[in-house]
Design a protein around this nucleic acid. Structure first.
Lengths: 196, 196, 196, 196
DNA sequence: ACTGTCGGGACATCCCGTTAGT
DNA sequence: ACTAACGGGATGTCCCGACAGT
């Protein structure tokens, strides 16, 4: 990796938690300058503008979050077991998220608008990616005859994502894991109900 | 109502959708000046600072949202029926929310931090208020023997709120009601399951 | 005294220490509003503008300072004795001035310029008034044959005022009476030298 | 000297007379922008805030004043002769000060308070520096047996500084050198008296 | 006599982005 | 590849003053 690429990665890595914690509007280049030690010119060498940097930071945040999820899956697990394991993992993430600031999709979703189309597209893609993964889990469960064949995997996936995101939001707001644990528990119950 | 109070209400009413759409950091006093026709001096006459105005705007937004909810409840309905009606209402709100910009709790939750303690408290209180209302619905259902007496109303309420907020988030992000409808449907199913 | 006059006096009395401590530019009407409990309109009922109020406050400050000086003079004292008594009084005033903020002439002199002609005239008049008083003391000493007839009273008065003001300035700056005591002591010495 | 340093010096040089004439509160960044041709961004590049610029301006003002003093001293002069020469110089400075606006110590002393601690420290240090210099003159006179060995150099220095500053103040206020000349003359007399 | 209301502008500060230079 | 330097503008806040109303 060339020197420039190292710097670029370094800037993204350093700015990611700032963006994910303070939001796009709440983050200034000055904060990133302070953290990285680079000057503005050095940063703009690698990114056209603030939004491009924010987009890169978001991508990294999602990548890290996703990696934290997959890290926890046992290769032998599949279908329902994997889903339950995933939900258990979520519980620990409610107050101690794998990326500082919590779920980047949630954090970005309220701030992106028509003035941030590039970033917006990325967030949508990330959400879609996550959905695809979850659908895969449900489909795997169907193939293993854990779930009924008529189970609507897309619906279940979206429901699960929505509930988890909402749970994260409540925990962050109240600064109390209790508010989200309830939701995760119900989701686990549902997975078990759907089996048999 | 005195002249000043009218102006104050007017400013709150006008700034509410701006704050609820663009967020706290994304909203400038200039935008509020443009919308209201007031100058900064006129605005600061009624609010100590931007946060105070944002707080008032949030309160109004939540009040309007809550009113829209209650407006839809039939006085004769109670317990499970009221919950199901509420969920039906939610479906229509996914893309056409009663307040512009969508659920103010969701919108604010990602942006409030330690620098906005006053606003933060309000958002927390609103979330708690909503939770209390939902708990009341479940408790009413228990009293009418629609739900089993051992049903954990708090857990159900938190789960429902989390799922709804997550659903709203997904719809807003994708600009497509489909992503949220799935969640609402599952919630309705669950209410029916909990009955009998 | 009519109600309005009482209010006027009250406002002057309350704003005087603020102006004398923070200076003209450093004092805002808000501070005076807070201290008096009046609103801006109430204040402007009695004063055309900020400068007019500052002028009134200055006059009061000088009046109080002058009163504090005369209060200490024994009616029987005159000439040199009175001058020495005055210098003793000055020593105690160096750190505990009779009006909060210290000598209003000194405080105002650095801030008045061509944009404050009205205030400027007042400060000049106050300085001239003080000078006249001091000249009177020296002249009285001459008449009592304490001082030589060829003593230049004006020169001595101006010198004494300059030294005292400079001493006050140094004490205020260093927040230490030592710096000014030296000057006062030399002045006392000189008075004694001039006698015989 | 790098380009930036030139700009910085230029800004300090340009803002110094403004600060020294109008005071800290009476000086706006706009005035400095107008005078320098720099924009706020360009100014803030070199100074963290207004106070930092004011501090730099004060330091320059004092440096210039001090330089003007020393420039006038003949290398061969020392002790009493140097003091008398200094007082002669003061006379010409009463109305035509070496730095526009007059003595920066006097000008700043009335305005610095607890909100300007950094600036305050500088002004105190300048006053102390001047005092040290004056003490040196008196001590030199003692060593040359111009003054009695028991002469209190510190006391004389403080007295002289106080009188000079007070004289400057009176001249500035009355816009008339007469008021200060009296004081300087007496000081000269005293130096001659202390000799013998 | 005094309050309430509002205008209009100034203020210091912060911001993002560009360019010259090395 | 990166820094230093600067522009130009927006931000929230404060400030003085005017005026209607009572």
């Amino acid at each position: 990796m060339a020197k420039g690429d190292i710097s670029k990665e370094f800037i993204i890595e350093a700015s990611m938690p700032i963006f994910n914690t303070n939001g796009y509007n709440g983050t200034s280049l000055q904060q990133i300058m302070d953290k990285t030690g680079f000057t503005k010119g050095g940063i703009y060498r690698h990114f056209d503008n603030k939004e491009a940097l924010a987009a890169a930071a978001f991508s990294l945040a999602y990548k890290k979050m996703k990696a934290a999820y997959f890290e926890a899956f046992d290769a032998s697990d599949a279908g329902a077991a994997r889903l339950l394991k995933f939900l258990e993992l979520m519980k620990t993430f409610l107050l101690r998220p794998p990326v500082k600031g919590g779920c980047p999709i949630l954090n970005s979703s309220t701030e992106v608008d028509d003035t941030n189309e590039a970033l917006r597209k990325l967030v949508k893609a990330a959400a879609a990616d996550w959905e695809t993964i979850m659908i895969g889990f449900f489909e795997a469960g169907k193939q293993q005859q854990q779930f009924a064949p008529q189970l609507d995997a897309t619906k279940e996936a979206r429901f699960m994502i929505a509930s988890i995101e909402g749970a994260i939001m409540l925990c962050k707001l109240h600064r109390n894991a209790e508010y989200g644990l309830a939701a995760i528990d119900v989701l686990s119950e549902r997975i078990r109900q759907l089996q048999q």
